[in-house]
Amino acid sequence: MLGLGNGLCSVRRHVGRIRRTWERVINGEADANLDFDDVITLLMALGFRQRVRGSHHALMRPKLDRPLTLQRAGNKAKPYQVRQVRAVILAYNLDLEV
């Protein structure tokens, strides 16, 4: 029983982190200070599929005109790419279903 409880806690923490990342992207908070892996995890939670070639992460989703392409800036996402992510989320009215 203990293992199940710890697993649920981990899932809640993960969902909470995705929700916080979504809020920071939508609100335009700290575009230059968002963790790259958090942005990728957010996009995956929004239904994107990822293809990695070298340093380029192409994220595709049905009905999207073209893929989003992201690259790391150290462990952070590049600010202009976070703005592109925000524009896509708002243009396609994407929301988390978690």
Rank of each mutant, 00 (worst) to 15 (best):
Glu23Val: 05
Leu64Gly: 02
Ala30Val: 09
Asn75Phe: 08
Arg72Ser: 09
Thr21Val: 12
Leu96Ile: 07
Tyr80Arg: 06
Asp37Thr: 15
Asn6His: 08
Val85Gln: 02
Gln50Cys: 14
Val11Thr: 05
Cys9Asp: 06
Asn93Met: 05
Ala32Gln: 15
Gly5Phe: 10
Arg20Val: 01
Asp31Gly: 04
Gln50Asp: 03
Leu8Ala: 06
Ser10Met: 10
Glu97Asp: 12
Val52Arg: 15
Leu68Ile: 05
Pro67Trp: 02
Met60Thr: 12
Gly47Phe: 04
Glu29Val: 10
Ala87Ile: 00
Ile26Tyr: 09
Val15His: 06
Leu70Tyr: 04
Glu97Asn: 09
Met1Phe: 12
Leu42Ile: 03
Val88Leu: 11
Ile18Leu: 14
Phe36Ser: 02
Asn27Pro: 00
Gly7His: 12
Asn33Thr: 06
Arg61Leu: 12
Asn27Tyr: 06
Val11Pro: 00
Phe48Thr: 03
Pro62Phe: 01
Gly5Ala: 08
Gly74Tyr: 11
Arg53Ser: 14
Pro62Glu: 13
Arg20Leu: 07
Gly5Asp: 06
Asn6Gly: 04
His57Tyr: 14
Gly54Trp: 10
Gln50Asn: 06
Val15Lys: 09
Val52Trp: 01
Asp31His: 09
Arg72Met: 09
Arg86Asp: 08
Pro67Asp: 03
Lys78His: 14
Asp35Arg: 07
Val52Lys: 13
Asp95Asn: 14
Met1Val: 11
Arg66Phe: 05
Val98Leu: 14
Val88Phe: 03
Gly54Asn: 03
Arg86Gly: 08
Val85Met: 12
Ala32Ser: 15
Val15Tyr: 07
Leu59Trp: 00
Ala30Asn: 14
Pro79Ser: 13
Ala87Phe: 04
Ala45Thr: 00
Glu97Cys: 08
Ala73Cys: 13
Leu96Ala: 03
Asp65Pro: 01
Gly5Thr: 05
Arg19Asp: 08
Ile26His: 10
Pro67Val: 02
Lys63Ala: 12
Ala87Asp: 14
Ile18Cys: 09
Gly7Thr: 06
Phe36Glu: 00
Cys9Lys: 11
Leu94Gly: 00
Ile26Gly: 03
Tyr80Leu: 11
Leu59Arg: 01
Met60Trp: 06
His14Ala: 13
Ala77Phe: 07
Phe36His: 14
Arg83Thr: 14
Ile18His: 02
Ser55Gln: 13
Arg24Leu: 13
Ala58Phe: 07
Lys63Val: 12
Asp35Gln: 06
Thr69Asp: 09
Phe36Ile: 06
Arg83Tyr: 09
Leu2Gly: 13
Leu2Cys: 04
Ala91Met: 07
Arg86Cys: 04
Leu68Ala: 09
Arg66Tyr: 06
Asp38Leu: 07
Arg17His: 09
Asp35Leu: 06
Thr21Asp: 05
Leu34Met: 10
Leu68Ser: 08
Arg17Gln: 11
Leu90Asp: 12
Ala87Cys: 04
Asp65Lys: 14
Ala87Val: 00
Thr41Arg: 08
Gln84Phe: 02
Thr41Leu: 10
Gly3Ile: 05
Trp22His: 11
Leu90Arg: 15
Ile40Phe: 02
Thr69Arg: 15
Phe36Asn: 03
Arg51Glu: 15
Asp31Thr: 07
Pro67Tyr: 05
Leu4Asn: 12
